[in-house]
Write a protein that binds this DNA or RNA. Structure first.
Lengths: 132, 132
DNA sequence: ATACATGCAAATCATTTGCGCAGTC
DNA sequence: GACTGCGCAAATGATTTGCATGTAT
């Protein structure tokens, strides 16, 4: 049961990961911090950030940045796209089949290797539409 | 010759816009600041940031965020996608025909309005491939 | 004249980091 | 025991903002 790259287990990291798994809200570090604090009152925000990096490097979570000034995190299980509401900032997962062939399409233009792509949709969600 | 929304002309803003127009490098505020400083030595970084916001709100430039911790700017003339090299961070414009119909595809899922989408490709550029 | 823009410096805010101690293997 | 992770607090770095003054209309 060797572990990846000298990484040791820790309660903090596990709670952070589980917390992220259990939400669909793509939260930021602060939100996760407040959440995990219920179980581990002494945890620090720095630890949250450090572990988010570790989890990201392990490929267990994804870091999202929509240019709001704060980064969001996502415990994804499979590739998917996002829809961002321009009114309320909510991020929704889109269960659209992702097209891997879309990478091939630009390979010739780029003249390099294309690993992945990211597709974000912007608009106004149904909740915000109904508010008006 | 009324101007949009009580915005007055300024040398600083014009230089910033022209500078951005003349590069394909998707620079950040700091880079623009250093560049514009050649012509306007007394300009301040704060002014650069303020004007980038103005230009963005006027729809003349676009703000990009690839989660590097700094925002990049792009004086786009038409919609296009981006390729980001994971090695050197270079951003390249992709002259691929953008698919507007791609918005329609998710409209039913989102149950809201879809204004636009953004498609970023990640990989390794030809320069970095050759370096190895 | 009046509103908008600037330069400067200080403030803010998210994120990172150094350090001495604690937990895991 | 050696190494990794933690909490705390201080540091960093990008971006924002208050203010007195300058500029465009």
């Amino acid at each position: 049961m060797e572990q990846i790259q000298g990484t040791k287990r820790s309660k903090q990291r596990e709670r952070i990961f589980v917390t992220l798994r259990r939400t669909r809200s793509h939260p930021n570090a602060e939100w996760i911090y407040e959440r995990v604090r219920h179980d581990l009152p002494k945890i620090s925000l720095g630890t949250v950030y450090r572990n988010l990096h570790v989890l990201k490097n392990q490929g267990k979570i994804r870091e999202l940045d929509f240019g709001e000034g704060t980064r969001r995190y996502d415990a994804f299980t499979h590739d998917h796209y996002h829809f961002i509401c321009e009114e309320c900032g909510t991020v929704k997962d889109l269960e659209v089949p992702t097209q891997t062939d879309i990478n091939e399409r630009v390979k010739t233009i780029v003249q390099g290797v294309v690993h992945s792509h990211r597709l974000d949709y912007f608009g106004v969600c149904s909740d915000c539409l109904n508010k008006v």
